[in-house]
């Protein structure tokens, strides 16, 4: 009885919230109806200009080639626990403070960005920002650290 009443009332509150939310946002052109959101959607990954994805095997081949620069987009703490050998760490949220590092990298250099794996989007966001900074050869290794570690490919761990 208590649950039935609660569910019935919750249903109506939910319907009211959906109605009011969409009507208000549409009438004020905010959020999902704002112009900036539509523009942002056009810039989202998946469009022609977005960086290409590489698989674990491709990443390993590029790693063996020695020309590619691997960038770890994860938090510094995770990077220190273990990362792809010779990868540098540029966490997504500290990109602005790492401009000095970025300025030393040639704009044409092949850059492979990775983060934790399928559950994180930092690599996609970071690669989009790098492309926006003018780096022309950025790729994403979406399988990331988890696939690399599981495959027992060369890695480095920093002492705590």
């Amino acid at each position: 009885m208590r649950f039935q009443q609660a569910l019935r009332e919750a249903f109506w509150l939910g319907i009211a919230a959906v109605f009011l939310g969409f009507v208000y946002t549409a009438s004020t052109e905010k959020g999902v109806f704002s112009r900036s959101f539509t523009e942002r959607k056009n810039d989202a990954p998946g469009t022609v200009s977005s960086p290409a994805m590489v698989s674990l095997d491709q990443a390993k081949t590029l790693f063996d080639g020695g020309d590619a620069l691997f960038i770890d987009a994860r938090h510094e703490f995770d990077y220190k626990l273990g990362h792809i050998r010779s990868a540098i760490n540029i966490p997504l949220n500290s990109l602005d403070t790492r401009q000095d590092v970025l300025s030393t990298i040639s704009k044409e250099r092949l850059i492979i960005v990775y983060c934790d794996g399928a559950e994180c989007n930092s690599s996609i966001e970071l690669s989009a920002k790098l492309s926006a900074f003018g780096f022309s050869n950025v790729k994403i290794f979406f399988g990331g650290w988890r696939e690399w570690e599981a495959a027992k490919f060369p890695l480095e761990r920093q002492p705590q």
């Binding site: 919230a17 939310g21 969409f22 208000y24 946002t25 959020g31 999902v32």
Partner: peptide, 8 residues
């Protein structure tokens, strides 16, 4: 979610 949750 952001459109609805605040109102809820």
């Amino acid at each position: 979610l952001a459109t609805v949750l605040g109102w809820l």
